[in-house]
């Protein structure tokens, strides 16, 4: 402990900050994309159309049964093969871009389950009320049901996003430079694991702890209004 060398951190903070920025970008992209796709999946799952139901259920169960780290690597290696098959050209994606895509489609499965229970939490009468006002299905969902579902599920959606923020660390498996990946790359070169990994743990803890406290507060507020 005595030779804990802070200079390793100060000398590399810029690189670490770059990594953190990438982690945040992936988190926000996957959150927005994941919630949109997830909501569509939830609507499919709750629709009366059997093939749509099956598709949504299959999608969700598929991604919920496989380890994220395996999906990250598999997509990275297979997506270009698929694109080549479709377009006939070799299209390099790169680890960084591949991760945006993987996290969006992977998290969609989890967000979809949250949105499904959110939609189910809205009383049936609300849908009837929407139709009674002359709304179409789309309008009822968009203007009546989804806003309430979203609002009820906001704390859960945000909690899932904190999990997602932590999970981005797994892109290290494909060599992308997220926050953890940046720390790992510095460790590879400078051989100072104690300093780097400890710093990473502390920073993750501070961010996630603060966010989860905020979510708790939000939850309390929403609970009162309801």
């Amino acid at each position: 402990m005595s030779d804990f060398d802070f200079s390793v951190i100060t000398a590399n903070w810029h690189f670490l900050a770059e990594g953190l920025r990438y982690t945040l970008q992936v988190t926000v992209t996957a959150m927005i994309g994941g919630i949109i796709i997830g909501t569509l999946l939830a609507l499919m799952r709750l629709s009366s159309n059997k093939p749509l139901q099956w598709f949504a259920a299959g999608y969700v169960n598929f991604f919920r049964s496989v380890p994220l780290v395996q999906v990250i690597l598999a997509v990275y290696l297979i997506l270009p093969l698929l694109l080549q098959f479709l377009t006939g050209k070799m299209i390099p994606i790169g680890a960084e871009n591949s991760a945006y895509f993987t996290f969006t489609i992977f998290e969609a499965a989890y967000y979809s389950e949250i949105m499904r229970s959110g939609i189910q939490s809205v009383p049936r009468g609300q849908i009837g009320a929407g139709y009674a006002l002359g709304f179409t299905y789309g309008q009822t969902m968009r203007l009546v049901v989804l806003p309430q579902a979203f609002r009820n599920m906001l704390p859960v959606l945000l909690t899932q996003t904190i999990v997602l923020f932590q999970d981005v660390s797994l892109v290290y498996a494909i060599g992308a430079t997220d926050f953890f990946g940046a720390a790992d790359k510095i460790t590879q070169r400078d051989l100072r694991p104690v300093e780097m990994y400890t710093t990473v743990a502390v920073v993750y803890f501070i961010i996630c702890f603060a966010l989860s406290r905020l979510v708790k507060r939000l939850q309390a507020r929403i609970a009162i209004i309801r």
């Binding site: 299209i91 680890a95 430079t177």
Partner: peptide, 19 residues
Amino acid sequence: KYQAVTSQNRIPLMQNGTI
């Protein structure tokens, strides 16, 4: 462009056109 590779993924990445 530069892409970091590891001993595990360099061959598949060469084959799939990433590098």
